[in-house]
């Protein structure tokens, strides 16, 4: 319970999602007396990738790596159902590659809990024991609650990131439009032409030099490009 409160506090404040996921795997290890815990997320290509782990030991990282193709995480991800209390010694046949490697690494029991959002599974919480033994129903429910917290954290993080990106695009588009209007005014005044003529000159210069209109406008405003260099009027032959 204390773990959930601590995690909820982290969620409310401005949080780094990776820090939160690592914290979550650490707490899993403490609360359920495990050897190791990790969180794997589905990448856009559909493969599972390790996002956070309670330990950086190579033998453990390799185990997560293997599960992009086979293992409790992979099964859990495909079915959306928990895979719990898997005795790696007796169930090794289930996973011909993963099983022996996990045993050799010193692990005996594995669990995988789905990180679900409505119909989709976005990732898996993976737990490892070195001893044979079963998690009881209350422990499994507790672990699933932690997996749900991780799901919420990731979804919140994604929504905010996406909103931030679109807002930056919005502000950027508005800014470059404003800079273009300012440059139009400057050129119109310096060269004694209309706003439309000033715009045509700015756009013509941008096209000819293969530059972005916003960048040309900024150069005009900064004084790096003079209004007269835009060649508003065709150069008349002196002869």
């Amino acid at each position: 319970m204390r773990t959930l409160v601590e995690l909820a506090d982290t969620l409310v404040a401005d949080f780094d999602v990776l820090d939160l996921l690592v914290l979550l795997t650490d707490r899993c290890v403490d609360v359920f007396d495990l050897e190791a815990a990790g969180i794997m997320l589905a990448a856009p290509d559909g493969d599972l990738r390790l996002m956070a782990s309670s330990s950086e030991a190579m033998r453990l990282l390799e185990l997560f790596e293997l599960q992009s193709k086979e293992g409790p995480c992979y099964d859990c991800f495909l079915t959306g159902l928990p895979v719990v209390n898997q005795d790696l010694a007796s169930d090794a046949g289930l996973w011909p590659h993963f099983g022996p490697v996990a045993l050799a690494a010193g692990f005996r029991t594995a669990h995988a809990l789905p990180m679900r959002l409505r119909g989709t599974v976005i990732g898996v919480l993976n737990l490892f024991h070195t001893e044979p033994g079963e998690m009881n129903a209350a422990e499994i429910a507790g672990a699933q609650a932690l997996a749900d917290v991780a799901t919420i954290a990731i979804l919140q993080h994604r929504a905010v990131l996406e909103a931030q990106l679109v807002n930056e695009q919005l502000q950027g588009a508005l800014n470059s439009r404003i800079v273009i209007e300012q440059a139009k005014g400057m050129v119109a005044e310096r060269e004694g032409v209309s706003m439309e003529q000033a715009f045509t000159a700015l756009r013509g210069y941008a096209r000819k030099q293969n530059l972005r209109l916003g960048d040309v406008a900024r150069s005009v405003i900064d004084g790096r490009l003079t209004a007269s260099a835009l060649s508003l009027r065709p150069v008349t032959d002196p002869s």
Binding site: I178, E181, Q182, G185, M186, V187, A188, M195, I221
Partner: peptide, 14 residues
């Protein structure tokens, strides 16, 4: 978005 204000700012700056 007050584009005319920005055009005028450009003219006054000149």
């Amino acid at each position: 978005f007050h584009y005319v204000v920005h055009q005028a700012s450009g003219m006054v700056a000149a």
